[in-house]
């Protein structure tokens, strides 16, 4: 048996030692509120570092019982193969239930139209597939890994964020959240998006992954890759998912991905950080924000807010 459990109070005293303990305790509390207040929660899993962190927090919240809700992946069909491989292995190792719904199906059913051209991406098409899946399974709470420090519209997001029948976010009429109390009362047809790591920064997530020795997909670490440059960003040229014009030249570079979304909207960064320690150091020293490599946010200043109003994560 160990000594006193280190929590916020102790954490405050041990200067120099980085620990996300206060944030971890908050996230575990939120996970438990979800399990207690909702009938059919689901954890939205993308295979990215944030959702992998959520899985660890959910394990901690319910130990020694299994995580009492399934994982769901909205697969754009444009994921990095390393991410899919990782997803399947994690689910198997932890004995979790995984639901996969494909954007390709929504396209085939004519519900959404594939974008074309230079900046074509399936990222915003995910919304339709997600909303259909929520309706299909009657999910009343969807746990996601969004963080307030990512983007300024997200900085306005609640921990329990109510969505209407159409999955819409009413940003001007949000419930106030006071103290630790989370109000999960909803009407039939509504659902709640839950963000347990709202208050974490990118560095908090990486430091947690480091401290907890959580395994993440290999593309987060520096590796050699065939790439091409466009608008000052580095794009993968390993396959034909990212549209590449004839005059955009392919070359080899040592890169890593700082955020892992749909391949068509996620750019790489030049990096030699090939271990978790080096990645943490790199993030600490970085002068560019995480979403600086996400072309989907660069479409306009309000890109994220607009997508969220439509039901995007």
């Amino acid at each position: 048996m160990s000594d006193t459990l280190i929590s916020e109070v102790e954490t405050l005293k041990d200067s120099g030692v980085f620990t996300t303990n206060a944030l971890e305790n908050e996230a575990i509390y939120i996970m438990r509120e979800v399990a207690a207040q909702f009938e059919k929660p689901v954890l939205l899993f993308s295979g990215g570092k944030d959702s992998i962190t959520l899985v660890r927090l959910a394990q901690k919240a319910f130990y020694p019982a299994k995580i009492p809700f399934p994982l769901m992946h909205i697969d754009t069909g444009h994921n990095f193969p390393e991410t899919i491989e990782f997803r399947d292995r994690l689910v198997k190792e932890l004995g979790l239930e995984l639901i996969v719904r494909d954007v390709q199906d929504s396209i085939d059913q004519g519900k959404v139209k594939e974008e074309s051209g230079k900046y074509a991406s399936r990222n915003s098409l995910q919304t339709t597939t997600l909303l259909d899946a929520i309706e299909e399974f009657k999910f009343d709470a969807c746990i996601g890994g969004a963080r307030r420090d990512e983007e300024k519209a997200r900085a306005k997001e609640r921990i329990f964020s109510v969505r209407d029948d159409f999955g819409q976010w009413d940003e001007k009429n949000q419930r106030p959240e006071l103290f630790d109390m989370l109000n999960g009362q909803i009407e039939h047809g509504q659902n709640v998006r839950v963000f347990p790591i709202s208050n974490w920064t990118e560095l908090d997530v990486w430091s947690y992954i480091q401290k907890e020795e959580i395994e993440i997909p290999s593309i987060y670490f520096a590796h050699k890759r065939n790439i091409f440059l466009r608008d000052g960003l580095i794009w993968s040229a390993e396959d034909d998912i990212v549209f590449r014009a004839a005059d955009e030249e392919v070359k080899e570079m040592v890169v890593r991905f700082r955020t892992v979304g749909d391949m068509s909207c996620t750019a790489a960064v030049e990096s030699h950080a090939d271990t978790i320690d080096r990645v943490v150091q790199e993030i600490r020293d970085s002068s560019i924000s995480e979403r600086g490599a996400r072309i989907d946010d660069k479409r306009s200043e309000a890109a994220m807010e607009k997508r969220k109003q439509q039901g995007y994560f």
Binding site: L5, S7, N25, R32
Partner: peptide
């Protein structure tokens, strides 16, 4: 042995 304040 002990759970501190604010620990989950």
């Amino acid at each position: 042995q002990t759970a501190s304040r604010r620990s989950s």
